[in-house]
Design a protein around this nucleic acid. Structure first.
Lengths: 353, 353
DNA sequence: TTGTATGCGTTATCAA
DNA sequence: TTGATAACGCATACAA
């Protein structure tokens, strides 16, 4: 199969130690042998076996990343940044998709553990605290991103979700909305919980109550956004404004709106989290709360490297979300006007061949 | 640090072999000891060291994936499918971003090689054939997806790009367009080359020549799509229809159109490759040529597993693209009408806080 | 059914 | 500056 150190040593009449040294600590080796080895490596295409090296050294050059959905552009952006930072340090990134599923997450954690990854970047599903605890106890640094798992010893890179929701709520309130609905995420996830909390409290501070029918809890996936939006729009008194807590559910909500031919922002104002690229190309361009995806990924990886360097105390970053105003929010129509609206399901317009 | 087999064996007064067997081939071990071991594993949280196992077994449970951009939703979708298929077989996926850059690609290939990945799924940058050759010779199966690297011995999962371009061209021709432009990709990549070829030939078969000014070659990234579109729209006689060879460049082209306040499809018809989700939410929903992303990812991984099982001859799949009609294409306006258009740069409308 | 012994390919310790 | 040797943690061939 592949050329090994022993074989290469035989060819050169050198010991394995010399060659190993020539490759990893060239300064400890005579210049002549150094070039000799370099040439042979080039000629025979020798590549050290990283597995053997890892076993011997007791550590790998690999970090694990568990995301809830790599297809969600938010996580894709974070992933890319993390991969870059890892590559910069000559580390590889092993990626696992949890798909918002605790079983997948536990499988992924165990796999990463067996792979002896040097550290883990982790978007929590809210479960598997026991496994995380064990890994952490084994000395594998973990950094929670996006959602806090609740473990004390892990580093965290989070976004001020309550603040983001507040920005969204305030914008809608300022436009004059009073019938405001929210589609938030699961309440056992900090993102779902805090975005609701910040939103509700901001409304309350303006004496606007978040009525029960206006509160929908999805699962951060597209389908749940669709369902929730459908339900909201079927209300006898539909909201004049809607805040959606992530981009996936927003995509679902948009589907619902299209299907019902509801105009944005004429009939309803729309604001959501996550400045994914398509947010500025849709009709109309979406007003959103942006999260610093690049920074999350880069920072998360850096924290891991700091741990490798020996940092012991845990570190917690809370990054600022940013309000980006586009054209999906406008002052509300009066109820009378709204009631006259004709809402007619529109047939699917895609045509496939 | 972590509990090892030897330590566990000591605790149980059993030999390491027995425990090893109890875990990997339970049927070879007495039921009583089996449960004894199982309990101890549970209690002490023993996890086998995958690195040691890999070294001993001579193979890893890892496959490498090199994509040109994980943030491109097309590759994200492929990645997700590949990860699923891998997980189904209890394999992990190591992901590297080449960023359309040959140096990054070579770095990634070498890293994967050192990691002793069992196989590689590969989106070619068109370079590094020598490294690929070497890896392949070492017995690491490789499957090219999306773009053919040109190596004979690798498996391939490609899409019929010429056919996709033909579908696009035919649609525009049928609508009556004669001034048709294309933004294609690098000509050393099969995707860039074949999409241009299929497009040009289809036009030619209807006696429409693809004029030089109407042919732009980008690099499949957003910025190049923007530049190319800007150049096309600055022509004394701008095209009435535009085919863009991937979703990234289409995003760039859309930026340009927005900026110049050019209406789609009134002023120009638009069609592109890749049915990314946002394509149906933009204004207007984009008519596109869809590629079977799921299938590409799943199939690529499966081919690898077949190789692991011993398949020797290489296999080549060419999947069918699909035409999806939405609302970005319409019959052309007459030249006179078009010339009257007012084209006024629109200022940037995003507002950040 | 269980135990003993060996080796996977590398790095690190120690001696030369 | 170089070489001999041991060890990383596991799986397996072979012996008991």
């Amino acid at each position: 199969m592949s050329l090994t150190l022993v074989e290469l040593a035989a060819k050169l009449n050198l010991s394995t130690s010399t060659i190993s040294r020539a490759l990893s600590r060239p300064e400890m080796v005579a210049a002549s042998t150094r070039t000799l080895v370099a040439e042979a490596v080039e000629r025979y295409g020798y590549r050290p076996n990283g597995i053997a090296r890892s076993l011997r050294k007791g550590r790998t050059q690999t970090i694990g990343l568990i995301v809830s959905d790599i297809q969600n552009p938010f996580y894709a952006a974070v992933t890319r940044a993390a991969e870059r930072e890892a590559a910069r340090h000559n580390y590889s990134l092993v990626i696992s998709n949890a798909d918002e599923n605790a079983t997948n997450e536990s499988r992924a954690l165990n796999l990463l553990s067996e792979m002896q990854v040097a550290g883990i970047i982790h978007v929590s599903t809210g479960a598997n605290l026991d496994i995380l605890q064990t890994l952490s106890a084994k000395g594998i640094p973990i950094v929670d991103i996006d959602r806090a798992s609740g473990l004390a010893e892990v580093d965290t890179v989070l976004v001020d979700n309550a603040r983001g929701a507040e920005l969204a709520a305030r914008h809608l309130l300022n436009l004059g909305h009073r019938h405001i609905a929210i589609i938030t995420g699961p309440q056992h996830l900090t993102t779902g919980y805090e975005r609701l909390k910040g939103f509700r409290e901001t409304l309350a501070s303006s004496d606007v109550a978040l009525a029960d029918p206006y509160l929908k809890v999805g699962d951060f996936r597209e389908a749940s956004g669709y369902e929730a939006a459908m339900a909201l729009l079927a209300l006898r008194e539909p909201p004049t404004a809607l805040f959606v807590a992530n981009n996936e559910m927003m995509a679902g909500a948009l589907s619902a709106l299209h299907e019902l031919s509801i105009r944005v922002p004429t009939d309803i104002s729309l604001i959501s989290f996550d400045d994914v690229r398509w947010a500025k190309y849709v009709d109309p361009p979406l007003t959103i709360i942006a999260q610093p995806t690049e920074q999350i990924g880069t920072l998360a990886a850096s924290l891991l490297f700091e741990r490798f360097e020996g940092r012991l105390e845990s570190v917690h970053h809370v990054l600022e979300p940013k309000f980006i105003r586009r054209q999906s929010c406008a002052p509300p129509h009066t109820l009378v006007t709204r009631r006259k609206q004709v809402k007619m399901p529109r047939s699917q317009t895609d045509t496939e061949t």
